Amino acid sequence: MTTRSGPEWVLFDMNGTLLDPSTLSAHLPSPLDTESAALGLLDESIGQSMVDTLVGRPRRFGEYLAAATARRLRLAGMDATQELVDETVAAVRQMPAFDEVPAALDRLRDAGLRLGVITNSATAVAEDALLYAGIRDRFEGVVGSDVPGVFKPDPRVYRVGVERLGARPEQAFFVAAHGWDTHGARAVGLRTAWVSRKERILLDSYADPEVSGYDVDEVAQAILE
């Protein structure tokens, strides 16, 4: 009987996994200034990016967020002014880390694991966001969707991310708070860890993650066990 060796890398999704997108609500007028509305903007943007990846015409992620913001404003009977839309798009660079994230990352690094980020945000946007959140120094590298030119869960994003970071799929965990994201990572051979904070229960149609936990701290603990 063979046993699986321990990981060398832990790779993270960024939006909704490391950083809290609910704070986007502060940039939206009532009645859109709620956590559910902010998370809905992100989910709608992700959906648009998936569609464009499938049809072969991906654009910048910020364009999807702008379109989702404008739509939500119009549905609420408001003017989708360029100023308000631009403010919301810019706010993705200023999301805080979830409270437990810095200490959890330190725990993984103290155990000798190497850390990286693979995100649907553009690399420059992700770099700014991680700097703002005060956690950029924990990661050896950040790979955004602009590098492969498509969006997760397209297999190319994970493969290019792993290659750029110098990791090997079988020796790396990919951590995400979205079942579709861990499902995509699993399909290319990455070991997966699911943060259940938002979704709570996975769809039965998704591949089971190797480990799971409510937040990044619980997932880090499970990876180290």
Rank of each mutant, 00 (worst) to 15 (best):
R107F: 00
A97V: 09
L115T: 09
V162E: 07
D137G: 14
E87N: 13
G77W: 11
A70G: 11
E100N: 00
G166C: 01
E127C: 09
D137W: 07
K152F: 04
G149D: 06
Q82P: 11
V160F: 06
P155A: 06
D146Q: 05
G112F: 08
A124D: 15
A111F: 08
F151D: 10
A124N: 13
G166P: 00
V125K: 02
E140D: 14
L165K: 05
L190C: 06
V125Y: 03
V101Q: 04
K152M: 13
Y132H: 14
Y158P: 04
G141E: 07
A124G: 08
V142Y: 10
F174L: 10
R109H: 09
K152C: 11
S145A: 15
R109A: 14
F98Q: 04
T119S: 13
P153Y: 02
T123Y: 07
L73N: 08
S121R: 00
A185E: 01
T88H: 10
D137A: 15
R136Y: 01
R107M: 14
F173G: 03
F98D: 06
L115Q: 07
T182N: 00
V101H: 02
F174A: 00
D137H: 15
G141D: 11
S121F: 13
D86F: 02
A80S: 13
D110M: 05
G184S: 07
P148S: 05
Q82E: 15
G134Q: 07
A129P: 05
A177V: 12
E83W: 01
G112D: 02
E100C: 01
T81V: 07
E83D: 15
G189W: 08
L165F: 12
D86T: 12
V85H: 12
L130N: 07
A185S: 05
A177C: 11
L113M: 10
F173I: 02
